[in-house]
Amino acid sequence: MALNDPYECPACTNLFAQWGHNTLAFFQQVGQAILLNSRALFMTPLMFRKRMRTEVAYQLFYTGIKSLPVLSVVAFFVGMIFAVQTGIELARFGQEVNVGGAVTVVMLREMGPFMTGLIIVASVGSSIGAQLGTMKVSEEISALEIMSIDPVRFLVMPRLVALMVMMPFLTLYTDVLSIFGGGVIATVQLGVEPAAYLDNALLYAENKDLYTGLFKALVFGFVINMVACHQGLTTKGGAVGVGKSTRSTVVISFLVILITGFILTKFFYG
């Protein structure tokens, strides 16, 4: 078994005992997910093996390139929405020119990695959860194990690599496009010269903002893969089970992204 069976709560009538056992079961799930991905992380050097390269390349393609269309639209519109909203407020004080700084700083630090994370959870994460879940219920995972092919190396590791490599790049892509979107609004609606918009953006934005954002994206990549692969590999009960694990992949990833995002922001910006 790639993963041990879930902790079984003994049938007990005592409510508190039940809670205790449920807590243990929860901890087991968390620990299992973390260990699973840590194993995959330690296996990453294997991706350079000749026969893994194709799979890793495909996962990079699937995670990165295939997400570009939806990310483009989302990033562009998020940038525009943010520029419109801050623009309205800033215009009250005649500070429209600061919209560049506002959009850039917010996108680089927070919204870029966050929006990218959410989009990737909804597209790639759910797809991983569903795919591994289907493989689990149709015994494909068992088949791999019997062939002595470690599912962690064969399935989890390439996806982990793809997510952790692509998330920062996709976040950078989102950043650039959303700042561009904000620039369009600044120019067309707020009457800020493009050069002034960029100047202002560069006045406020720092490399620290950019790199903390990209680091966050890296962590989000790990988190998304952790939740999706664990949920997928612990799927039980046919099509309904696959549906459940897809759903919980998205829900749990959202929550974990929010919480880790907050912790990282707190860590870097106090």
Partner: peptide, 19 residues
């Protein structure tokens, strides 16, 4: 465990081919 499993070939009910 791996080398023990290498002695086996296993045909699953659903064939379990990687899709």
């Amino acid at each position: 465990l791996s080398s023990m499993r290498e002695k086996f070939g296993y045909l699953f009910q659903s064939a379990a081919l990687l899709q």
